[in-house]
Nucleic acid binder design. Structure first.
Lengths: 155, 155
DNA sequence: CCGCAAATTGCAACCGAGTTGCATCAAAAA
DNA sequence: TTTTTGATGCAACTCGGTTGCAATTTGCGG
């Protein structure tokens, strides 16, 4: 499983005709394996266990992946970048979900339906970015109910 | 003109029943007078000319104004907060315009019409935030044409 | 108007995400 | 294998923002 992701990552990096390095493959594989957007910190932690890759290198690899459209950079109001392995649909319109409780960020790309945005005259719109904030499945009321039940069972 | 804004600011601060200090009035007046969202830096520059208010105080005042809903904090992908004097309509839906050229941020609040956003099952949406990126009136093609003409006239 | 307590401010030191310069190292071409 | 060129590691740095604490101010009661 982890091996498969690693191979996919390697192929994707090789396909760019640029150098295939441990760092690039490892970072991309980590992103591919992730179920949601990861911060630099999370990426570093998930990688460093095995290989000893420098944090600066991770920053540079992420920048490189983003420039090659292999990864997608999401800005966040906690002033921390998050990264996704890029999906084909990433175009001029993005939508993300940010959990107000755990802070996790998830891509919602196909979900957006913006009818129209009126910009002041003289302004020209190029990209549209939409962020929905709320509670994710793991933090929502349903999840809380579940954990309350679990707690009761322990008594 | 500047005096009027100052008085409005003072009234707004006084209305909170909290202490009316130079710093609070000055920062709020600056925001009220601004045509767009200002960064901490811009606010500090516009104020410090006259009064010698510490940067930490400006940060704290901005935090205070935001907590009292007198100001509105906008996050930005250049990792810099921007602030607006709060308008009534600021609710669960925000829209901002960010200029890709000059970086300026403008509030678009009434302009948004989001038909629907589909969130994954188990997720619960609480707020929606929309950012349109592009060129503002001062940086767009029309403005560029104007300045080219001006340049020719100088010869 | 005066003095007091509590809230606010200024200062200095700090924090954490991200960046830069440079010497060293390793992919891949020759 | 050697060479070349791009990638990496390390240390030091930048920058927006925060924190601890002592010195001031504000607004109140007298």
């Amino acid at each position: 499983m982890a091996g498969a992701v690693h191979e996919v990552a390697e192929t994707l990096v090789r396909r760019t005709r640029a150098r295939v390095t441990r760092a690039r493959v490892a970072v991309l594989a980590t992103l591919l394996a992730a179920e949601r957007a990861l911060t630099h910190h999370e990426i570093e932690r998930r990688i460093k266990r095995n290989l000893g890759i420098d944090r600066v290198t991770v920053y540079r690899v992420l920048e490189w992946l983003t420039a090659r459209d292999l990864a997608h950079k999401i800005s966040d109001d906690d002033r921390v970048w998050r990264f996704n392995a890029a999906k084909k649909e990433h175009g001029r319109r993005h939508a993300h979900f940010k959990c107000n409780s755990c802070g996790g960020v998830t891509c919602l790309d196909k979900a957006m339906t913006v009818r129209s945005v009126l910009v002041p005259s003289g302004f020209r719109s190029q990209e549209i970015e939409l962020t929905v904030k709320g509670l994710c499945a793991g933090c929502g009321p349903a999840a809380r109910r579940r954990s309350r039940v679990r707690a009761q069972h322990r008594h």
